[in-house]
Design a protein around this nucleic acid. Structure first.
Lengths: 118, 118, 118, 118
DNA sequence: GTGGTCTAGACCACT
DNA sequence: GTGGTCTAGACCACG
């Protein structure tokens, strides 16, 4: 019974990514109440402190906010979320092209590879 | 006087990547003698122990081999090197597409975003 | 639809501050009848329990008093109110100077900075 | 044997303030190596995790940076430090004047109070 | 029941 | 010896 986390990066980072992705893709809607820290921790089978650390990071990124004693909520700043999503995607492509370039693939070639992979 | 290394991953891993890339792109040719550990360490401004660890990793990957007292050499197994390069590229593309998909983007969209951002 | 409260301190504390300020500045006069707990709670959009807690705190400070079944009133002890106001101001100034000193600034310098920033 | 920390705010916040002040006032110079997390924790009589949290916050503010396995260092960005110091001071004055204003003191009056307090 | 904080103690990778 | 991570478990204020 292994945890579904890879070993190369901290668990809390992977938690950030998962929840962030859920927000960016609209699985959690703006202003929606998120599961409590303890529920999240239970869902992901991690210690509540680890979960807390991940959620604090998301709060630092302004993707969620906290209401004292009420819980945590998805940011209601839709444009921020949209922008984050776009930046994410652009960054992914940028990094990919960069790595392919390092391997000696030109941009044209690399984009062709990408499209072919699709 | 900063190290040209990021501090989110071990230095030796980053060294592996750089030398590996130099081999895959043919900057170091098959059977070519590599710089000594000390020379490498000096080039990259790292501790020789760290450099040594990186080269051991490359040897484990069969990309280089050691001749006792003579030094280290690039593998003469060209097809291995070719294959490694192709696998690298494929892996990069695969990961990129997976991440984009997770965000709900197709390749075209993402590339468009990237071009717009530039 | 945000509460006009910061979430770094308990709401009831912020309520205490607001009502206290209103009393110290004479918006509510000595012996004047205050709004009921429910009215206050409605004005500030908070839970009546929270409002109640804030008013209890003000009563503890002797700035207001309760007449059973009649309601709550501003203290008629004018000198007490005066003194509270002066102490407040003195405390504010004292703390400010202390913090500036800790940073190595004199008042003149700091005020100059402030004016420049505006 | 009480800890020299107030009870109204988290210890880690107070630790941030202290170390930050030491940096802003030049007690720790740019690029100077800071005490290790464990040393700091011992100095302040807190748990290393608490100290770590405070130092992470300072890193987030770019006032310190970490070299893997070597320790933590004061940022070498002098202008950033200068700016932070100025902003601190300005913010202190701004808040002070605001609070005095809320008590019914006008700006002139308040500044006079400040200067008199000196 | 909510989030926030703190401690104690452990393990790890890295140099 | 360094920082980083994680867990377990506890306590607290708040509403």
């Amino acid at each position: 019974m292994d945890h579904p986390f890879t070993n190369d990066r901290p668990i809390y980072v992977q938690l950030v990514e998962r929840v962030e992705q859920a927000i960016l893709t609209g699985q959690y809607r703006p202003d929606e109440k998120l599961p409590s820290v303890r529920e999240f921790a239970s869902m992901y089978q991690v210690n509540p402190n680890t979960m807390q650390k991940a959620l604090q990071e998301l709060e630092r990124k302004k993707l969620i906010y906290t209401e004292r004693t009420n819980g945590k909520f998805v940011s209601d700043n839709c444009s921020l979320i949209e922008k984050a999503r776009d930046q994410h995607a652009a960054e992914i492509v940028r990094r990919c092209l960069g790595e392919l370039d390092a391997l000696g693939y030109g941009v044209e070639e690399a984009i062709a590879l990408l499209k072919k992979g699709e």
